[in-house]
Amino acid sequence: MAAEEGKVDPMKQFTIEPIFGHDWQLADGFNIAFTNSALWMALAAVLVWAFVAGGMKRQLVPGRWQMAVESMTGFIDDMLEANIGKAGRKYVPYIFTLFMFILFGNLLGLLPVGLLGLHPFTFTSHFTVTGVLAILSFSIVLVVGFAKHGLHFFSLFVPKDTPFLMAVFIAPIEFVSFMVRPFSLGLRLFVAMMAGHVLLKVLASFVIAGGGAGPALGAAVGIPSFVLMVAISALEILVAGIQAYVFALLTSLYINDAENLH
């Protein structure tokens, strides 16, 4: 998918370029160069840290910033309490970090820093990233489940009060649906973020191509495409929040399975 001269390649935005440390090796063959992807992850992490640090004044009567941070932690706390119950409180640090990291990553990818000549990058549009996050969440489910219930955790695959004959068929289905969870969790976020960015790039290429085809055709194609881009950008901001929420919500639902078997 090499970009031809004068054409916009909608996939180019997802390329990863090493920034420094080209020859850093973790082991033989494992290159860990600091890439633009890592840079945007670090930016998102620093922004999350700055956001939360701004709310650390710990005043009895909170200011605006503290109120914003407390409403975010309260939002995650409420979600976990609703899905898991009182035991959900101990997962707030993980779910909060996960939610904020994905949310800031999604939103940072939407910033029009391309106007400044920089390469905007959405690390959540890479399944290497979303996959690792999904596996992290899934590992927590497995660790909590087996630590809490031992081998009894396998009864998760047999819904309560299932007759034996049905359980024989239901258990394999439940097992497959359980094992698919990390993939669906990681792919959902990756696909949602990539699709939105590709769509925006495609529409932008319409505007550019239309502009090159003369004033009349340019206006006929370019203006509707541009209006659509504005609308889809608004939608993408919504999707950025929703996908981060869905990731955190599903993680908390899966942890609920492990915490409260059935």
Binding site: I16, G29, I32, S37, T128, V132
Partner: peptide
């Protein structure tokens, strides 16, 4: 980039 992505993440 696999190793770099996972490592830095």
């Amino acid at each position: 980039v696999f190793a770099s992505q996972v490592f830095w993440l």
